[in-house]
């Protein structure tokens, strides 16, 4: 089992006002799954992803990742968990400006304990997402679709246990979006666990399972019988 969540709650305090965002969620995700977390804006799906991705802490409840209780880890332990076990792909790419494609992909490795052959590993990953010819380009010189592929390469470079994709197609045209979904599906086919956060049913249906969140509660958790297949691209070999 990759992750197991038990009665997970999250509330935010703004002065005296307490806003409850997650009302006790319980579910588990196995290794190799492709799960969509779906829900309208304000449903708490992003908050859930942040907690699962160890960017934020739950207010109460339990969260076990690869059998390890996450809620008791300190900041530094969370940082190295994010570094070694988790890859993020964001809607707005979040690439470093004025930095080359290659250096962006190398970034997680510079914070990693394993610093061997950083450039070689980064190049190999970039080639696998079809950007071997863009290594020395700066991030402002490439298209949106390419940016998101750089972000995927960065998420993959440290060989994580799970990849979180937060609205990865939200800032892309439909053609680039399909290419990105194709890459994610192929990654899943080769054994990677993918957790996709989206508010669109269309995008969510690329996954094999959908967890629907509404008002901080799980509304539905079902497999997708006929999940959508991205067009065959040449992106991943």
């Amino acid at each position: 089992m990759l992750m197991k969540v038990d009665n997970l709650k999250k509330e935010f305090k703004t002065g005296e006002v307490v806003t409850k965002v997650l009302h006790g969620l319980s579910f588990s995700i196995e290794e190799g799954e492709f799960v969509s977390i779906m829900g309208p804006s304000g449903s708490g799906k992003s908050t859930l992803m942040h907690i699962l991705g160890m960017l934020d802490r739950a207010s109460s409840g339990h969260y076990a990742f690869l059998g390890r209780e996450v809620t008791t880890l300190n900041d530094n332990e969370l940082a190295s968990m994010r570094n070694e076990k988790i890859g993020f792909v964001f809607q707005s790419f979040n690439l470093l400006p004025r930095t080359t494609v290659l250096d962006n992909v190398k970034l997680p490795l510079t914070y990693s304990k394993n610093k061997k052959e950083i450039s070689k590993r980064a190049k190999k990953i970039l080639e696998s997402v079809g950007l071997g010819h863009r290594l020395r380009y700066y991030t402002n010189q490439i298209s949106g679709g390419e940016k998101q592929r750089v972000a995927i390469a960065r998420a993959l470079v440290n060989n994580p246990s799970v990849i979180f994709a937060d609205e990865p197609t939200g800032n892309l045209d439909s053609k680039s979006g399909i290419q990105i979904m194709d890459i994610l599906q192929k990654l899943n086919d080769s054994g990677n666990t993918i957790i996709l956060v989206t508010h669109e049913t269309f995008t969510a249906e690329y996954a094999k399972r959908i967890i629907k969140i509404k008002d901080g509660r799980i509304e539905e958790d079902e497999p997708v019988l006929n999940h959508r297949q991205a067009l065959d691209g040449d992106m991943l070999k």
């Binding site: 994010r82 070694e84 970034l107």
Partner: peptide, 8 residues
């Protein structure tokens, strides 16, 4: 940077 593993 923190998301990809930088600590404080």
């Amino acid at each position: 940077r923190k998301a990809v593993g930088a600590n404080n």
